[in-house]
């Protein structure tokens, strides 16, 4: 459980995180989404106390991260910026972390195996590929068997197999009752694993929602219909929860709340000719872009404004 209250971080003039309020609950994967520079990494650094908030608070299971007696057991974090000495081997890196908490060597071997690093564990991490480095970061995050797993863009640099591995890992961790908090700027990626979404733009909270609700609010799935008798079809399809729009005099209708299959069946039953029947899936990516457009556009138009 992570709770942010009015969490704010300023770097000089720049406000990276601006009054964020959110709660990340255990037992499911929560996606942390936002365009570049939205403040995701900064928020995550504040959660584990690497950066101090300018104002507001963020707690993990009711306490500031630093106040826990076993921090690595509370939060396992994979951060965006590299956090490993390139001259140290994977094994030595994990061992040094383990010593701080009295975590046994056995556990070090376990996470090395779990992340598939056996063959390179004794190599200096500076020689690792991007994906291997990412796996080592994840191994370090899992080391303390943490109640909360927090990963900043974990699929960066991973091959398709690695991406799949992460997806399964996240689902598994959440299934074990842990709090799983994962950032990304790709909605499509998040939609596959996350149940909850916290969406930020320019440091502000844009939405604290579920994948389901986001789709619903974005208008759900629409079916485009072109027919010989739009007025009659409209009457036949209308029911509570069904929305039908169409220009007068046009043969085209847009239907939400009914599947293409149902519409086709109704039309056939009543002998109405259909010229087109297309299901439009509202992509989550679109819903996300709609939400974040303002915060992205602001950056793009700023120079023009100052010129004017």
């Amino acid at each position: 459980m992570i709770e942010a209250r009015q969490l704010t971080k300023r770097y000089g003039e720049k406000t990276a995180v601006d009054g964020l309020d959110f709660t990340v609950r255990p037992g499911s994967v929560t996606g942390f989404l936002g365009p570049n520079g939205a403040g995701k990494s900064t928020t995550m650094r504040m959660i584990v106390g690497l950066d101090a908030p300018t104002s507001g608070t963020v707690t993990v299971r009711g306490r500031r991260y630093a106040q826990h007696s076993s921090p690595l057991q509370e939060v396992g974090a994979l951060l965006e910026a590299k956090s490993i000495h390139p001259g140290r081997t994977a094994f030595d890196h994990l061992t040094a972390l383990a010593y701080t908490h009295g975590i046994p060597k056995r556990r070090v071997h376990e996470v090395i195996e779990q992340t598939g690093l056996q063959s390179v564990a004794r190599k200096r991490s500076g020689a690792f590929s991007l994906g291997m480095g990412q796996r080592l970061g994840i191994a370090a995050a899992l080391l303390g068997d943490p109640a909360t797993v927090m990963l900043d863009e974990p699929v960066n640099g991973l091959d398709p197999e690695g991406v799949l591995w992460i997806r399964n890992l996240l689902t598994q961790l959440a299934g074990e009752g842990r709090t799983v908090f994962v950032s990304s700027h790709l909605m499509s990626e998040m939609a596959l694993v996350a149940e909850h979404l916290i969406i930020v733009g320019r440091g502000r909270l844009l939405a604290d929602t579920t994948v389901e609700a986001l789709v619903r609010d974005a208008g759900g799935d629409t079916v485009a219909v072109a027919t010989a008798d739009p007025a009659r079809l409209r009457d036949l399809l209308s029911a509570p929860g069904v929305q039908i729009t169409g220009e007068p005099g046009s043969e085209r209708l847009a239907v939400t709340g009914r599947s293409a299959r149902e519409i086709g069946a109704v039309a056939a039953e009543h002998g109405i000719a259909l010229y087109e029947l297309t299901q439009h899936r509202v992509s989550l990516e679109e819903a996300f872009m709609n939400l974040t457009r303002e915060s992205v556009e602001y950056h793009a138009t700023r120079p023009a404004r100052s010129a004017a």
């Binding site: 609950r25 255990p26 068997d145 074990e176 009752g177 939405a207 604290d208 929602t209 609700a213």
Partner: peptide, 20 residues
């Protein structure tokens, strides 16, 4: 859009965890 999640918090981790 702001949907507040009102589900009860899920149970604490089910795996037995050593204390470090």
């Amino acid at each position: 859009t702001t949907v507040t999640d009102t589900r009860p918090a899920a149970a604490t981790p089910t795996v037995p965890r050593p204390v470090y």
